[in-house]
Simulated scan of single mutants.
Amino acid sequence: MRAVVPRWLAVIVVCSWLAACGGAKDEPAAAVGASGLAVSLAPAQSQPLARNVLVSGPVSAFEEMQLGVELSGQRVTALRVDVGQAVSRGQVLLELDHRTLDSELAQADASLKQAQASLTLAQVNYERGAKLAATQLVSASSLDELRATRVQAEAQVATARAARDAAQLRRDFAELRAPADGIISKRLVQPGQVVAAGSELLRLIRDGRLEWRAELPEEQLSAVTVGDSVELPYAGGTVAGRIRAVSPGVDAQTRTGTIYADLPEPGALKPGVYVEGRIVTGAGRALMVPSAAIVQRDGHSYVLTMKDKQTVQRLRVRTGQTAQGRIEIVEGLKEGQQVVAEGAGFLGDGDRVRVVPAAQQAGKATGNGTKQP
């Protein structure tokens, strides 16, 4: 007896077979869609590059003068400047008690006048005696005595003048004057203080001139020459300078040398500020790739290139300067070689990828960035 298959069961079987066939056709497309991360490529290109050295260092006074007095045991009676004040050469900065010195100077002046009067009298007596000796009214021995008296009076005048000059010098020491134009950078004295000779009382930045100093390793020091320009970013602006001097040697222990850069217009920079500077050492060409193409692993730099149409391989490179979103490749790549520019950080050696145009990859990244859960 023949078995009869219900119509509804036959319909189910046929639909299941058709569904299976349709799914088999969609599997390759789905497999292709999931074949790897979408990436974009960029070539390594030779481009002009301004050669520079980045290094940090302090801003210092070009010449900072420590000022003091040459008298001991004197009290400060007047302090005429303060920190940050600009002064000119010869300006009085502070005064010491000079009453005793004034008295000594007056006494020395009186002694000098007395000696000059004695010299005048001795000169007149000698001239009169010389006239009388010509008519033999005065003996030669008397004339010799008059001559000796005159010479003695001249010596006394010289001694009195020297004593007077010494008293004047001590009086001048009671006033501390600026040895040059500049800016007072430090004050270590107060009015009424009794000071000692040679102790530092004030500090002066000569001409208000500042410079930037930095320590460079020996391999970078050799690239810097006198006259190279310097750029110091600070307080939202850039202070320009120029290398004034480069140390002729390096320290035996640290293996570094010092560079000195003049800052004609320091702006907001102050002595003691520590800033990073860029020393422009010249111009040239360099092999450049996008900065996003560099992957840091285990302390080394790598880029990813295409091993074939769907697989990437990792190459170790040595990098140099960075400029405008691109980085220099010193070693490890050839010009024109394609590297993964977007998505390199998510890939490893041998991963499968899909190469898409850079614009499409950027649009996709932007879209993904706006769809946050």
Rank of each mutant, 00 (worst) to 15 (best):
A122H: 11
V124D: 13
L204V: 10
G182C: 02
A122Y: 06
Q193N: 02
T159F: 01
T159W: 03
S118E: 15
D207L: 01
A180Q: 11
A117K: 10
D144H: 15
K113G: 02
L202K: 04
A134D: 15
A117M: 01
R147P: 03
D181P: 06
K131G: 12
S142Y: 15
G208M: 07
D181C: 05
Q190I: 07
L143V: 11
S118L: 12
L201Q: 08
V138D: 11
S118P: 01
Q114G: 08
Q136M: 04
G208T: 05
A122S: 15
A155R: 06
L137G: 12
A163F: 02
G182T: 04
A162L: 11
L188M: 14
A163T: 11
V124M: 07
V124C: 00
R150I: 01
R147M: 09
G129I: 05
L169E: 04
A133L: 07
E154A: 13
A140H: 10
L146E: 10
Q123C: 07
D165W: 08
E145G: 08
A166T: 06
L204H: 05
D207A: 03
E154Y: 06
R171G: 03
L143E: 02
R206L: 06
E127P: 04
A160F: 01
A160G: 00
V189Q: 00
N125R: 15
R203T: 14
P179E: 03
E211Q: 14
Q152F: 04
A117W: 02
A133Y: 07
Q116N: 01
L188A: 06
E211T: 03
Q190G: 04
A148D: 14
Q168C: 00
R170M: 09
Q114P: 00
T159L: 09
N125H: 14
R164C: 05
V189C: 00
S118W: 06
Q152E: 12
G129T: 15
